[in-house]
Design a protein around this nucleic acid. Structure first.
Lengths: 222, 222
DNA sequence: TGTACATCAGTGAACGCGCGTTCACTGATGTAC
DNA sequence: TGTACATCAGTGAACGCGCGTTCACTGATGTAC
């Protein structure tokens, strides 16, 4: 069995198990026995469980950031000094997210992993992602800022995170929600179908009226 | 030390640690040493770690469902056969969520716990919550259905979960997001402040135009 | 009023178990001379 | 062409550790007679 075999089998198995149960609930023995490799192979190839978790993310995020940077380069060249419309920016991001894991048929796994990265108490993982992939998101939010000049900076920040919550929560809890939806509405829902439903909601969210000021809501000396 | 002392100290400490680190990452030894009670006291009073987790949730959800049912009773009495407007329903739910843990100053903890309940692989917990608290949500979604007759059932289902994602993701990741917001925009953000910002976004989400049909987006035999 | 017993919150120490990691080792392949 | 050595993916068994749980026990309080 060549090296790439073992390394790939570990990564393939680990990402599925992590996505299903979370990081702490998945042991190296779970992974190596399902992947049919030796227990010690994880530490031999990756060094530690933490490093394996980071490698699982890197295998998605490296190609994603490369693609996304390239797509933004293309948009900037196309629009020159003009402002890139919000819908185009969102559409571009969605397309890049969809394309990366397409060949591996595991968009669902990728989304579950993103959800876990936010919700599980893996400080090292948040730091790793921020360090390696923070710059592409900074670039993106800069473009969104130009596309939504009417929004105060703080409002835009919060709305982008509201959207992020919608997308990550929905797609990472997809299996459970899909079961309910299929039972109650007889509809089979694909990830692409969900993104079709998400689009108008996300756009409306970004264009929602500004909130009432605090003075409108609370008594003066509340 | 009276019984209530020990039980309460365990619950108070457990909810904070669970919210900070998750269930698997919080050991009974963490909880009991911080709560200054004997390790065996958890199993003595609650029976198991799983039962402790459920008890932590019950302490929030029992008063919440009681309040929420009462509030919906009030609305139904007030509106008689008329339809209760969507904004009123959402407002009522938000008020009940805010009121319950208000006296304990731990709305943040409650929200983090809800986020964990969805994201962590605690099958027993989802089953417990569904079993004990499912009916009040069924009642609520029935009223939302009457308030949004223009939405197809499946669309309403998904949008309610999009909203749930926004709220849970935002409030459960509050600390990290708040740090960023405070550093970048010099704004201190309370939970109430966030809910003020969430309101127009949630309402706009529910009122967003229907998505393009599949035929508009995909080639016929895609 | 006094004694025997029951109840029950709480304790201290130990149990077996699964965990991530380590380490000495194997065996195949490539390289130097 | 043959021999000695280096490299490196992979292995099997063991390490120490922290985990949830169990159990015999304590000691205070209440109850029956």
């Amino acid at each position: 069995m060549a090296q790439t075999d073992t390394v790939t089998r570990i990564l393939d198995t680990a990402e599925v198990l992590f996505a299903e149960r979370g990081f702490a609930e998945t042991s190296l023995r779970n992974i190596t026995s399902k992947a049919k490799v030796n227990l010690a192979a994880v530490n031999y190839h990756f060094g530690s469980k933490k490093a394996l978790i980071q490698a699982v993310f890197a295998r998605y995020l490296d190609p994603f950031t490369e693609r996304f940077h390239a797509a933004l380069d293309g948009l900037e060249a196309e629009y020159g000094n003009e402002v890139i419309p919000l819908e185009i920016l969102l559409e571009t991001m969605a397309r890049c997210v969809l394309e990366v894991p397409a060949e591996r048929n595991s968009l669902k796994v990728f989304m579950k992993l993103l959800g876990l990265a936010y919700s599980q108490a893996q400080g090292h993982l948040r730091r790793y992602i921020q360090e390696h992939y923070g710059s592409v998101f900074t670039r993106f939010t800069g473009l969104v800022r130009r596309a939504t000049p009417e929004l105060p900076d703080a409002e835009r920040f919060w709305r982008l995170h509201f959207m992020l919550g919608t997308v990550i929560f929905t797609l990472s809890g997809l299996d459970a929600l899909r079961d309910i939806a299929e039972k109650d509405y007889g509809e089979h829902v694909s990830v692409r179908e969900l993104i079709r439903r998400l689009r108008p909601v996300v756009v409306s969210s970004m264009q929602a009226p500004l909130p009432a000021t605090v003075d409108d809501v609370l008594p003066a000396a509340g």
